[in-house]
Design a protein around this nucleic acid. Structure first.
Length: 197
DNA sequence: GCAATGATTTACT
DNA sequence: GTAAATCATTGCC
């Protein structure tokens, strides 16, 4: 079943990021359903430098992060890659969870076509820019609500034991100084679909 | 209006 | 391991 919006509106974005491991992300783009189990996430909060909304800085791009939990935040990075985030917490508090890796489930063939790959390549969805392409996510899906749109997350009863969850430093935000060292990245131990591997 | 830059990926050595 | 690709957004003039 779909996760209720209350799941996203809890105050601890780090807890939400780890809770999302094992949940399943669905999209329905161009009438085609694709889905994948979330195996890697990162938490971002306006209280630290790694976040676009650091210090409460609000711009056109990140405005949706200030909405209540349950909205999507999609933006373009390096001019090429779409990155998919889930907004958390309540209105006025800019926290979000970046989805970095999923394990393909439904629509494997559709994902291969979108990525231009053949075979079950690990490279299909093992990275934040790759999984958005595989799922058909782009800026059209920015600002959607996860309980009432073509993007949503379901709990299929998969439980990840605590000892299978690894916390580590976040990736690709060295410019954030000390805050880049926060252990706010979570992934499932020994899962081949985790990025940077 | 214009220059700087990045929550990445890919290819090449 | 390192480096280039590539453009929307941002911040300053």
């Amino acid at each position: 079943m779909k996760l209720p919006e209350s799941f996203y509106q809890r105050k601890n974005v780090v807890k939400i990021a780890s809770d999302l491991l094992g949940k399943v992300l669905f999209t329905c783009v161009d009438g085609q359903i694709t889905s994948g189990k979330i195996v890697e996430t990162e938490a971002y909060s306006w209280t630290e430098r790694g976040c676009h909304a650091f210090g409460g800085r609000k711009t056109n791009r990140n405005a949706v992060m200030f909405e209540k939990g349950g909205y999507t935040y999609v933006y373009l990075c390096y001019g090429i890659h779409h990155l998919f985030n889930i907004v958390t917490n309540r209105t006025g508090t800019a926290d979000a969870v970046l989805i970095r890796g999923i394990e393909p489930m439904e629509g494997l063939q559709i994902m291969e076509e979108r990525r231009g790959l053949t075979g079950r390549s690990i490279h299909l969805t093992s990275g934040p820019g790759k999984l958005t392409q595989a799922l058909g996510i782009d800026r059209k899906l920015n600002g959607k609500f996860l309980t009432d749109s073509e993007v949503w997350v379901e709990d299929l009863g998969v439980k990840i034991p605590a000892r299978q969850i690894v916390a580590s430093e976040r990736i690709g935000i060295d410019y954030a100084g000390e805050d880049a060292r926060l252990p706010w990245r979570f992934h499932i131990r020994d899962n081949p679909w985790v990025s940077n591997g």
